[in-house]
C-alpha cells in the first residue's frame, strides 16, 4: 500500500484527523518547574496542542507531574481542567503543589459516556490550556476518540495529559510525548527512638517517546514531606515536632482539642 493510500485510509477511518508527521511543530510547551524533568523532556517540555501520556503503575509519580503542569498553567492565569472519575483529587495536596484551585475545573463523571463527553467538551472549546484525564480515562477512550481529541487539541492549543498504566496502544500512537514513570522509592529515615519516619520519596522517569525532542532520557527528583503527618498541610499543627513515631501523637491531639 502506498503512503498516499495509507493516509487516505487513515483520514477516512479517523474522520480527517491530523497526521502528525506533517503537522507543524507546536508553538511552545509547558515547563514542569522541575529542572531535571524539564531537561529530560527536551527543548519545549510538555508540548502545547498535543497529547502527552504519563504512564506507570499505581504510586509511580504520575500525579506529581500532572500537578506540576497544572500549577504552571494556573500560575500563568490560564484555566486548567482535571477529569477525575475516581474522585481522587485532594484539594489540599493540589493547593500545596501550587495549583490555583479557583482556576481549575474539576469534572467528576460517573459514567464512561460522561467522561468521553467531558473530555470532548473541554478539549474542543479551547478554554483550558491544560486538561488532565485521570483514572480510567485511558481505558474508556477508543481510538477514534483519541483521533478526534488529538485533532481538537492541535486546533485549539490545549495540552491534553492522560495518566495511564501504559497498556493502551491507540493512546501511545496518538501521544506526541510519552513519559514512563518507573516508580516511586520511599525515603525512610531512622528516628531517634528506633522507629522510622518517611522523609519523602524519589520519582524516576524515562522519556519513552518524544516527537519534538530526544526520547530515551531519564530523570529523577525527590519529593519531601513538609509536615509531620506528611500528607497535607496542617496549619494548627505546624509547630509540632518534626518527627513523631510510636504512639507519641498527643501534640496533635492536644492542639485539636
Amino acid at each position: 500500500m502506498s503512503v498516499a493510500a495509507l493516509e487516505t485510509l487513515l483520514e477516512r477511518r479517523f474522520h480527517a484527523a491530523t497526521v502528525h508527521a506533517k503537522a507543524a511543530p507546536p508553538r511552545g510547551g509547558w515547563s514542569t518547574g522541575i529542572t531535571d524533568v524539564d531537561r529530560a523532556l527536551g527543548p519545549i517540555g510538555v508540548p502545547h496542542g498535543r497529547i502527552t501520556e504519563l504512564f506507570g503503575e499505581t504510586s509511580s509519580g504520575r500525579t506529581t507531574i500532572a500537578y506540576a503542569l497544572l500549577a504552571a498553567c494556573t500560575a500563568r492565569g490560564d484555566i486548567g481542567a482535571y477529569v477525575d472519575p475516581d474522585n481522587a483529587l485532594f484539594a489540599p495536596a493540589a493547593g500545596s503543589a501550587g495549583i490555583d484551585l479557583k482556576r481549575l475545573i474539576v469534572v467528576r463523571p460517573s459514567e464512561a459516556s460522561s467522561l468521553r463527553r467531558a473530555a470532548d467538551a473541554l478539549v474542543r472549546s479551547g478554554a483550558c490550556a491544560v486538561t488532565v484525564l485521570d483514572g480510567c480515562s485511558a481505558e474508556v477512550l477508543q481510538p477514534h476518540h483519541y483521533a478526534r481529541l488529538a485533532a481538537q487539541a492541535e486546533k485549539n492549543g490545549t495540552s491534553l495529559v492522560v495518566l495511564s498504566r501504559g497498556g493502551c496502544q491507540s493512546l501511545a500512537s496518538f501521544a506526541s510525548l510519552r513519559v514512563h514513570l518507573r516508580g516511586l522509592t520511599p525515603l525512610w529515615q531512622a528516628g531517634s527512638d528506633g522507629g522510622v519516619r518517611l522523609h519523602g520519596y524519589r520519582i524516576a522517569l524515562d522519556v519513552a517517546k518524544s516527537k519534538f525532542g530526544a526520547p530515551g532520557k531519564s530523570a529523577s527528583f525527590d519529593v519531601h514531606f513538609p509536615e509531620v503527618a506528611g500528607s497535607w498541610w496542617v496549619p494548627a499543627c505546624a509547630d509540632a515536632p518534626a518527627a513523631i513515631t510510636g504512639s507519641a501523637t498527643d501534640a496533635c491531639r492536644e492542639s485539636s482539642a
Binding site: I34, T35, D36, V37, G61, T63, T64, A66, Y67, A68, D86, N87, A88, L89, F90, A93, A94, S96, A97, G98, L187, Q189, H199, G200, Y201, S220, F221, D222, V223, H224, F225, P226, G230, S231, W232, P241, A242, A243
Partner: peptide, 23 residues
C-alpha cells in the same frame, strides 16, 4: 529539625508537595 536530620543528599531537585490521591 527536618533539615538537620535529613540524610545527606547529592545535588538533587526537591519538591515540597507530595501528591496524594485520596480514596
Amino acid at each position: 529539625r527536618t533539615r538537620t536530620t535529613a540524610p545527606p543528599l547529592r545535588e538533587r531537585e526537591v519538591v515540597w508537595a507530595p501528591a496524594l490521591r485520596l480514596l
